[in-house]
Design a protein around this nucleic acid. Structure first.
Lengths: 341, 341
DNA sequence: CTGAAAGCGCTAACAC
DNA sequence: GTGTTAGCGCTTTCAG
């Protein structure tokens, strides 16, 4: 007697019995195999629908040791637009594909990341979308090598395709500032240990150089991207004798902190100081004046990542990285430096 | 020959063979059963660790038709602080419990919600945390009755406990405005079809009444909570002959839209108009002046929800609803009405 | 084209 | 305490 459980759910055996066919045929019909008489297939599918049949995903996954039933989504945070917007769009697209997305927050802790990736493997996920923690462990990299992976925002040197911002607008922002007459420019961005931290610093330096300003003259402060970071750097930079006449921020969370601290400093924007932030324009438009912001189309980024992953799961050869154009939206927080500087 | 797959992973059979015990004993030891000689249990666990054993969650879930392996998280959106902050904290807490969280975005579409809940049941999730869509289907309610459920933000009349804001601060905000001398107050909030829409409207009306203002004199505009909503209502309200001297907003997404439109109107805050918004204070502090905001401790809300769910999964009797205190943070956007109104 | 039967990797009765 | 043996519900050879 199948005493174990069966909470009244219909399974393939029920369908098979009721239709007087074999479970194999039912399975084939339900999975759209070509090798079933079309008429029969339709009958089986209709009956399954009528009976409210829903395949047990565990059984399915266990049996055919593959399936797109699950995908892992491994990110350091989700309560910040750069991640929540991507998570939202990925969940949308994957669920349209019948795939369930397992959300995992590493909090940028490599140990937790490893545990979580291990658990995802235990779930036999079809693939993983990951934004690696700063100090990703070699073991994690190793595990990720075993299945289709797509990286975003940050790369981790796993041989997997990624979707990133080109961050060109960040360089453009610096060039514009130089063109406006700024010579002392501060840059506050994510630590170089994070791939996008390195990329953004490069973009900023290149932007300076392109406009004829020595990149080494930039006052650079690299920090962990966290809410409690940034304020200190702002204070320090603004209290220097040769304080910068413009500040550029290279990360969303840092931008919020910096904007707050700049506000607290009482400096007028852009009269006393020009400010360029990074992230979601909708929020930074609240500021008065609206902040000049470097932004990336996160939903588009998500779409590319999802497409890449589904391709990888489908067996496509791993494509190359995708670089999304960043955009500089000039608000009211940038202008010429104060006279006499 | 077990030819199907085995991608070189170690399983209980391997461990059993290597230790010359039975798979049952291995399983028991790994699951912390009392009925294994402690010394043996330790030996088994150590060996499992050394071999890098990771239990196949599908097999486990399939076999013991229960387990907290998976939990569903069903929400209308995730790219808004009210949801992303809760998702973040829940993912944290659940993952600490070894539970994987399947994220599902309904986009407030009842059909998708039903499909997604059905799929979650197919995954035999141990429970579901849900913020129901506006027009949740009866079928969805029915399905949710079959397992531990916790609601948050919005309720859906499924007999499940929920964690909500008491929204008292919204009433308090209105009372304060009346005390400051405002008589024409506008309220823009979520549709009453959403449980929190109804609750917030009630809070606002109660706040008015408590301060001696006829609730029916409020200019109320109820909308779907979406970015493209709110602006129209603001324009309409502000162009009336007897335009409100104060505006209160009852939702986070609406607040962003309203703040933007108010800014566009060119009215001075609080000189021409007082404004109270709803949501994450960190962002609204960007505004100049910093906006007076009604807020809820989302991480705490998440903690309560996660605890409730884990309790329910653990077999605790379903407790009652949790009402979290809301907080009124007075910024610079509220003051007395303009003279002569 | 269809059916019988063998598992996927694990847990849980039921013996010993 | 520990081992034996059924399955969980599905997919998938292998026959026919």
């Amino acid at each position: 007697m199948p005493a174990r459980t069966r909470r009244g759910e219909v399974g393939v055996v029920d369908l098979a019995r009721e239709l007087e066919v074999s479970t194999a045929t039912v399975s084939r019909a339900l999975n759209g195999s070509e090798r079933v008489r079309p008429e029969l297939a339709r009958r089986i599918r209709d009956h399954a629908r009528d009976r409210g049949y829903v395949a047990n995903r565990h059984a399915r996954a266990l049996s055919s040791n593959s399936s797109h039933a699950f995908v892992g989504f491994v990110i350091p945070y989700v309560d910040t637009p750069a991640y929540s917007a991507v998570a939202a769009e990925c969940a949308r697209l994957l669920s349209a594909d019948g795939t369930q997305m397992i959300l995992t927050i590493t909090e940028n802790d490599p140990r937790r990341e490893l545990d979580q990736v291990r658990d995802l493997l235990a779930t036999r996920v079809a693939g993983v979308v990951v934004s690696p923690s700063t100090g990703i462990l070699a073991a994690t990299r190793e595990l990720l090598r075993a299945l289709p992976v797509v990286q975003f925002h940050r790369g981790a040197g796993i041989g997997a395709p990624g979707v990133f911002s080109d961050d060109a607008a960040l360089g453009e922002a610096v060039s514009r500032l130089v063109d406006l007459g700024h010579r002392r420019i501060g840059y506050i961005g994510p630590s170089r240990a994070i791939s996008n931290g390195a990329a953004r610093l490069t973009a900023v330096r290149d932007g300076a150089a392109a406009a004829g300003l020595d990149p080494d003259s930039l006052a650079v402060r690299l920090l962990e991207p966290a809410t409690d970071q940034g304020a200190g750097a702002v204070r320090e930079l603004l209290h220097r004798a040769d304080r910068p006449t413009a500040l550029v921020v290279g990360g969303g969370t840092l931008s919020l902190a910096v904007a707050r601290e700049v506000r607290a400093s009482g400096l007028a924007l852009p009269g006393d100081l020009s400010l360029v932030v990074y992230g979601d324009p909708a929020w930074f438009a609240l500021h008065d004046p609206p902040l000049t912001v470097v932004s990336v189309d996160y939903p588009e980024l998500a779409r590319r990542a999802a497409r890449l992953l589904l391709g990888g799961i489908g067996g496509d050869p791993p494509g190359g990285d995708v670089l999304l154009p960043s955009e500089l939206r000039t608000g009211g927080s940038t202008g010429p430096p104060p006279p006499g500087t």
